[in-house]
Every structure is written in C-alpha cells, then in structure tokens.
Write a protein that binds this DNA or RNA. Structure first.
Length: 155
DNA sequence: GCCAACGTTGGC
DNA sequence: GCCAACGTTGGC
C-alpha cells in the first residue's frame, strides 16, 4: 500500500503552480539538505506514494494540493554544481550525500488549508508539521492524517 | 524584519 | 565526544 508524505516549499521559490506548469507536470525535488528529510526521500519514498504540497514562508502557510512520487531516489545533481545554491563541496559523484525524487502534480485544492486550521483539527496532533519549532521539510503522513487533510481541504 | 528553535560545524 | 558559536528555517 502506498505511503503518504508532506513536502514544504516556499511558493516564491517553487509553488504548486510551478509544478503544474512543468513539462509533463513533473519535476525533480532538488535541494533538500537535511539528513532526516533526505533519509525519508532516499529510503522510504516509493513510486506512487501520495505527497501533500505545503507552502511555507507565506501568509498564511498551508497545504495547497497533492503530488505523486513518479521516480524513486537518485543523487541530487545540484550538490555537484558549484554555481548552485545547493552546492555541497564535500559531495562527490562517487559518494553522493544528497538525494531527490521526482514528483508529478496531482491536484490543487479549491482552497489553501492553513497551518492554523490544521492545528485545530483533531487527529493531526502527531503530525510534525503542527509541532512547535518544527523544521523538517519532508515528513511522513499517516493514512488517517492524509484522509483528514484531504477531506478538510476539498471542503 | 524579527527572532525562537534547532541543526551543523569545528575547536578542544 | 562535548558544546559554544554560527547559520538557517519559517512562523509571526
């Protein structure tokens, strides 16, 4: 059975509309530079998994839609590119440190489901997103949480 | 723009 | 291997 995830992105950098506008509506999920988030992508995200798309650093922050994992993990090429803001001088092609998956656009919700609303919803207490001080940019979502969020966001 | 939270780095 | 300094995230 497919698993579920949530990924964060600053919409000014990369929004769900950017993803929907890509060729074939799919893109590399590059630039993740946190080990815990990387491990989820590298080891656990599987083809066909569902992904909640969250807009951070915006007013208000919240979940705006969903995507699907269409390619499992492989090295993030931006770690080798000294011109990239994601360059990592300690990474080599022989021993890559950072990984990414490919995501395809699936759905844009009729409205943004805000972080505040999710904090009020029963059943999301264990979602890292709603925890104070949380900074994880890729996190697992349980089937029950997924269902509750979709129901609330679709109205 | 501020700043709390927290992950990472590097000196020892 | 500890931990202070530092940098980043991300809500507000």
């Amino acid at each position: 059975m497919a698993a579920y995830w949530l990924v964060k992105s600053e919409p000014e950098v990369y929004s769900i509309d950017h993803l929907a506008a890509e060729a074939e509506q799919r893109a590399h999920w590059e630039g993740v530079r946190n080990y815990q988030a990387r491990n989820f992508m590298r080891d656990e995200m599987k083809l066909g998994d569902g992904v909640l798309f969250y807009h951070s650093n915006t007013k208000p922050p919240g979940v705006v839609g969903t995507a699907t994992v269409v390619r499992e993990s492989y090295p993030d090429h931006t770690q080798f590119d000294s011109n990239s803001r994601y360059y990592d001088p300690k990474a080599t092609p022989e021993s890559p440190r950072w990984f990414m998956v490919d995501l395809a656009f699936a759905e844009k919700f009729p409205r943004l489901l805000s972080l505040d609303e999710m904090r009020e919803m029963p059943g999301l207490e264990n979602l890292p997103l709603v925890r104070r001080g949380n900074r994880l940019s890729v996190m697992p979502v349980s089937p029950a949480e997924w269902k509750a969020i979709l129901r609330a966001a679709r109205g």
